[in-house]
Design a protein around this nucleic acid. Structure first.
Lengths: 164, 164, 164, 164
DNA sequence: TTTT
DNA sequence: TTTT
């Protein structure tokens, strides 16, 4: 349809290290799980409430995949701009399911790190060597030095768990 | 989580008239189906391609529900600002499903009509009488006179078809 | 600075036909004047109020310049995504002035027409022939047939009126 | 005008401590100077380039003013959502000038801190006591403990310097 | 004037 | 599963 806009803007934290896979012709695809949350005070009880929302982010853009792979870790805070896409798939029991994802593909996609927290030591904070070559102006980011320990162990779990 | 943002911006057209329901205590909830689409030219074949994406919008904000009920019709073009929310539900066969929706609730929600198209006759295009009372500054809209014929008949279909 | 975002989203109407100029090496630059407005009801008097805001939009992106030149006319409703930029200049009296503009340049810029209104007759609404070649995915638009009469006459006025 | 949108989204750093003033009837107004910057590599020379853009942010929303006053300091990284507004004023020499600002007023305004950096010591990081009372859902923030030294001295300078 |  |  002419004249339409489909845009998602998120600021949140990664629930796990990025998962990187490759297509048969070698192109990378990165999957992120991002949490956002709302906090409010219950009007009746005055109690503090919080609700966390989990988002599935899929990165087809090759440059941004590289950024995700090299710099993002579980816990990192990111700014993301992408588009909504709902995908149909069939689970092992043959049941049709739908999964809605935020897709970063082509232009008008942005992925920016918002924290330069070091996981333990150095204050290193170089810019990405190639932030300008991602095809996304404005997509500059701060380097996040590898966090001590690192994740990785969670990746397999996430592969199985299947989304929604 | 502190410092998070969860925002969706859509411009698209209604695939059907809005569905309005009420909670037990009488509060309205409006459901919209909105289509956005991307067009591009296939690099290999040069062929023109188009992909339509359907979005579920749920309006809890009472003022915006009224707007939806009174002014929106199948085919109307709207601007929407809301937040992503994924809801778990169980279908008739007892199977757990997830549905991701764009929720307009409380503040920071916007619903604006982008066309004042008349369905047949007049060029009438009064502003909403009460656009300022919706609790959303910037949420002004142009009136869309009832479209000839109108929808309605599609509602039942949409209930059955079930999306995701 | 690493990790920054500078984004403006406007939906508004052109106050005049686009002005197209060319740099010495022949690259087009389009200037648009776009109006947005807020309406609200005065709490004290109950009176309906409206305030119009005028925006200067400058398009360096060559593909979007072409769109502006060919399809946009005074009165057209557009969706725009760009970045804020403040420029210093010196007027004829030698006084330094600043002008803040919304710049559409490179990627992450969007220009989409939101009306297919015909200025006289047909309901023609072809897509742009080359919407995919603008370097902006998601930047599809509906064609606006040339409006009867056309603008032009207003251009001179606007040049003089001086903006900010 | 019906159906318009005027939205600015910024992520950047404060160039100075917030300035807080009060209207004659005691309502607070906060002024922020926020820097965003783009980095890219020059295609010809391969040189790394950076351009910083400075933004004037004016907060009329009382709750967000309190947030600015209590938690924001020079150097803080923030997410801001507001609207563009151009204001005319006359300088001491009687010359008319224009200043374009990002206004946070009423609803649809957001101010969120994106760093919880401590200026020297503690890891203190309570949520705002009243983040839910700002009239902005989604406007939660992380506390920034007072930074050692603090600014303040810069405020007077900024009053005089006059913007654009 | 920030930040990297 | 994140973050505060």
């Amino acid at each position: 349809m002419a004249g339409s806009v489909n845009k998602v803007i998120l600021i949140g934290n990664l629930g796990a290290d990025p998962e990187i896979r490759r297509t048969q012709d070698g192109k990378p695809i990165a999957n992120l799980r991002i949490a956002t949350s709302d906090t409010w005070r219950d009007k009746a009880t005055g109690e503090r409430k919080e609700k966390t929302e989990w988002h599935r982010v899929v990165i087809f853009n090759e440059g941004l995949c590289k950024v995700a792979e090299q710099y993002l870790k579980k816990g990192a805070k990111v700014y993301i701009e992408g588009a909504l896409q709902t995908r149909k798939w069939t689970d092992n029991a043959g049941i049709e399911k739908y999964s809605t994802e935020i897709v970063l593909q082509g232009f008008n996609s942005v992925l920016t790190m918002l924290d330069g927290r070091s996981g333990g030591g150095g204050g290193a904070s170089d810019d990405f060597g190639g932030s300008d070559s991602f095809g996304q102006s404005g997509s500059s980011s701060r380097r996040q030095p590898a966090m001590a320990g690192g994740g990785g162990s969670m990746r397999d779990v996430m592969d199985d768990e299947i989304p929604f």
